[in-house]
Amino acid sequence: MFEDQTYEVVLERLLSNAPPGIDTRPGAIYYDACSPAAAEISQLYIFLDSILELAFASTSNGKWLAMRTSEFGVDPYEANSAIRRAHFDVEVPVNSRFYIDGVYFITMETGKDVQVRCETPGIIGNKPIEGSSLIPDQTIPNLQSALLGELLIPGREKEDDDSLKARHQKKVRKPAKSGNTSHYEEWAKEVEGVGEVKVFPLWNGRGTVKVVITGPDLTEAPETLVRKVQEYIDPEPGMGKGKAPVGATVTVVSATIKTIDISIVLKLSNGSDISGVQLLVTPPFEKYLKSIAFKSTTVQRNRFGAILLSQNEIIDYSKITLNGAESDVELSEIDIPILGTVEINEQI
């Protein structure tokens, strides 16, 4: 809006307002007095442009974006800690600390089979493998075995600006009200640990609603999280004791994982090797699959070809198979495609 208010334009305007008879040539006193003022004023115009962008959700960022979206009831999701099960051979007290893979877990109750919360918010608490040994941070008498168990509530990172903008836009353009599909999606996402949501109205007759959820980062939702969402939205089917209105029978389920194994035969440029190319193409393959999750029911084989040909290390490819077939992969409406093995062979 103010991009035309440059230093030169502002200076010319100041000089044009000089009293009659005043020397305004470069080096004159009046010119030297106006020049630094013009520089500061032009900077203010730049700041005004920035402030104007911060006023609109589509061009805002950070805390300013959060302030804007909160006016519509859309607040950024804060990071939450993963909650896991842990198994001990003796009773351990509440608030006992255990270490594994760079993070600490704290017991949330006293007992042998207890829930533990990761001290560090985010997805880091989801990563340690079930069955791994926990190292106590303090002496616990007679403790011989401490094992990390299943993931109960997945940890989630703090929401980024792009995700917040998308939720704000959906809230404004498709407002959640009166138990419409957007309302069910909003209710499900109010439960800590839920990632994406897909709603199927009338899926099993009148008054029925299926709510399909994922964990953070498009992972399969643990059974504990599914139960938590079910209890929040509709603990007693049709009775209206949760968020769902009276008469609505809601079924909450997890999305299912569909693994996509890829085999490729290609021609490499001079100096390139298969291992390097495999590392190069894996991230964009994963990005493509994540981009279509809950949005498309087809994994398109030609999209992988386009990714391959965009790499300078690859001259051409002669064959791409997905899950053993030279064809697209069809997904169910609740499938989440994830990348499995990537096998690359060089064309002879």
Rank of each mutant, 00 (worst) to 15 (best):
F2I: 02
D4C: 02
T6V: 03
E8M: 01
V9L: 11
V10A: 02
E12V: 00
R13F: 02
L14T: 00
P20A: 08
R25S: 15
R25I: 02
A28T: 15
A28K: 15
A28S: 15
A28C: 13
I29T: 14
I29F: 14
E40Y: 05
I41V: 13
I41Y: 12
Y45L: 00
F47S: 09
L48R: 05
I51E: 11
I51Y: 10
S60K: 07
R68S: 08
R68G: 06
S70L: 07
V74N: 09
N80Y: 08
A82G: 04
A82K: 11
R84S: 09
R85K: 15
R97D: 10
I100V: 15
T110V: 00
T110R: 10
R117M: 05
I124Q: 09
K127F: 06
I135N: 00
D137L: 01
P141E: 04
L148I: 14
E150T: 10
P154C: 04
R167A: 02
H168R: 05
H168S: 07
R173Q: 15
A176Y: 04
S178E: 10
T181N: 14
H183L: 10
A188M: 09
E192P: 05
G195Y: 03
W203Q: 09
G205A: 04
V209G: 01
V209N: 07
G215M: 00
P216Y: 03
A221N: 04
A221G: 06
L225I: 06
Q230F: 13
I233F: 15
G238M: 11
G240Q: 11
K243W: 12
P245N: 09
V252N: 11
D261T: 03
I264L: 15
I264P: 12
I274K: 13
G276A: 03
Q278I: 05
P284H: 06
K287S: 13
L289H: 06
L289F: 03
A293V: 03
S296P: 00
Q300F: 08
R301Y: 02
N302A: 04
S318V: 00
T321R: 06
L322H: 05
N323Y: 05
D328M: 01
V329T: 00
L339Q: 08
I344K: 09
E346V: 14
Q347K: 15
